[in-house]
Design a protein around this nucleic acid. Structure first.
Lengths: 194, 194
DNA sequence: GTCTATAAACGGATAGAC
DNA sequence: GTCTATCCGTTTATAGAC
């Protein structure tokens, strides 16, 4: 039989992280107090420190786990045609971004509020993600199915373009996710000279 | 002969705004204290309140004046070919973004820290800027020189893509501003089906 | 316009009881 | 694991002297 307290802890931990993610994304890391996070979960401040050593570690955990999940979820097959891989990347990026818009926003916006070593770690993870896209573009040029003036800049441009969707997309809006992906795919295909 | 105090005020005001812009962009609005801003300018805290009623108004002023300068500086000529207008927009957006990366960053990142009425005002200005780009895309489709699947989404996609440059561009880096503009222009042309 | 001093609230984090 | 209580530094903003 499950221990009451143990079971509670397994639930409370994720709740604390969910609340922190939501509040940090909405108001900014510095603007959110530990008291606000506690209130959102239904705890008193002191109890939060059973789940994180301090506020900074809470933010670093959110960013690190987001990037690690992203990298683990992305499945590429270098044997496939580059254009197919690019379309798969586009769908993957749009879907995960719209599933977790708060984590995406945080990862791009709150890097500056991390201490140097935490920041370097997250930046390296993000760089691996950018490299995954650039590898596809390089393959496309080698295969002759794409033509981009600079693979590094093209990767940065495409990620910025796709991530920007989270700034305006609203569930139940004019276009659903599939339609958005189709529209962006047409533009991306053109941008890479396909 | 100029009054010492009057002359000082005309200089101090902009200095306060410059310091606030720099610090807000670097650390985030909520993370920056009025004391830090004062120290940056060489004042004591109390003196800041001669230039702004409060911290919130200081941020709102920065965002509003940035957007208004942007809109005032953008000179379009609807009589020209749409592709030329689009290239002019691209050059304009890249140049102004790289000239004032801090203001650009603030305008996109700190909207959430404005009170509702201030936020609505800035959002409306930003919307006008997006509309200026969309108008060019619509003209391009009418003229038959462009083909985009959705003019609104295309405008949002292009602005996100171009603004993203501020995230990685470094003066004296691998590519200078003209080269960056040329690379992006090739991608943008493709994206709009030209 | 700028200073010093201060009010009043809020920040992160910890201690000890249960 | 959670609560209450508290420490102590910092925050925005204001008052009054110069």
């Amino acid at each position: 039989m499950a221990r009451t307290q143990g079971s509670r802890a397994e639930i409370t931990g994720p709740l604390v992280r969910d609340a922190a993610r939501r509040l940090f994304a909405r108001h900014g890391y510095a603007a959110v107090s530990m008291r606000q996070i506690a209130a959102e979960v239904g705890l008193q401040v002191g109890a939060l420190y059973a789940y994180t050593p301090d506020k900074q570690a809470l933010l670093a955990d959110l960013l690190r786990s987001h990037m690690e999940e992203l990298l683990a979820a992305w499945q590429d097959d270098p044997a496939r045609p580059a254009l197919d891989r690019l379309q798969a990347f586009l769908r993957f990026h749009i879907q995960t971004s719209l599933e977790r818009p708060e984590a995406v926003f945080l990862s791009y916006m709150e890097l500056r509020n991390l201490e140097a070593d935490n920041r370097a770690e997250i930046a390296a993870l993000r760089r691996r993600y950018e490299d995954a896209l650039e590898a596809i573009l390089i393959a496309g040029m080698t295969q002759g199915s794409m033509r981009v003036p600079d693979s590094r800049l093209a990767a940065m441009a495409l990620i910025a373009m796709l991530t920007g969707i989270t700034n305006w997309y609203r569930e139940g809006g004019r276009l659903d996710q599939d339609r958005v992906a189709a529209v962006y795919w047409e533009m991306v295909r053109g941008a890479v000279g396909a």
